[in-house]
């Protein structure tokens, strides 16, 4: 991890929601399709739950699997990666790498006992504001059902 510039593991921080459980989700969105799709959802005033915090990356292929592990270890309840549709990558083939890489990661997460619902992928184009809203709703619902992430608590 040190090679990736992490100095310290962060303390466990569980979101204490009023009443029900509100999952904390990290979204990695590619700059060209999904981030622009989320922008379009905004300009179209589509409503969706506020649980996903977006980190902008140039391409879904930029996302290192360690980022996802780091998110889950640091207490995020879920991670969502969204990129251009297959065949539409701005960098022509980055999302092919992403698709393969994260299919493997998803299996791996399940193998080590992490609920596969905590890690999700979607393909949202810059024209699909409605799809982005739908994806967020579904992912939040999924992870709400999966319950709070307890890995970081166990880590201690």
């Amino acid at each position: 991890m040190s090679a990736l510039g992490t100095d310290s593991m962060k303390d466990d921080k569980k979101m204490a929601a009023d009443g029900g459980f509100e999952p904390n989700i990290v979204g990695f969105l590619c700059n060209w399709c999904s981030y622009a799709g989320a922008d379009l959802a905004g300009t179209s005033r589509m409503q969706y739950p506020p649980n996903v915090k977006i980190i902008r990356v140039p391409c879904s292929g930029r996302v290192n699997p360690l980022f996802i592990l780091k998110c889950l270890m640091d207490g995020a309840d879920g991670v969502l990666i969204s990129g251009c549709h297959i065949g539409d990558c701005h960098y022509s083939e980055g999302n092919y790498y992403a698709r393969r890489r994260f299919a493997v990661l998803k299996n791996f997460l399940e193998y080590i006992g992490i609920d596969p619902r905590r890690f999700q992928m979607s393909w949202v184009s810059a024209a699909e504001g409605d799809k982005w809203a739908k994806v967020v709703k579904e992912v939040v619902e999924d992870i709400r059902n999966a319950g709070p992430n307890t890995i970081s608590a166990e880590k201690k």
Binding site: A3, L4, G5, I55, R56, V57, P58, C59, G61, R62, V63, N64, P65, F67, H90, Y91, E93, G94, Y97, A98, R101
Partner: peptide, 23 residues
């Protein structure tokens, strides 16, 4: 695009503006 950074096992290659340290 940063595809190189994601495949680097050593963390040796990084993309400016979206570095590993930043993310």
């Amino acid at each position: 695009c940063g595809n190189c950074t994601a495949v680097c096992r050593m963390g040796a290659i990084d993309v400016e503006g979206f570095t590993n340290r930043q993310i």
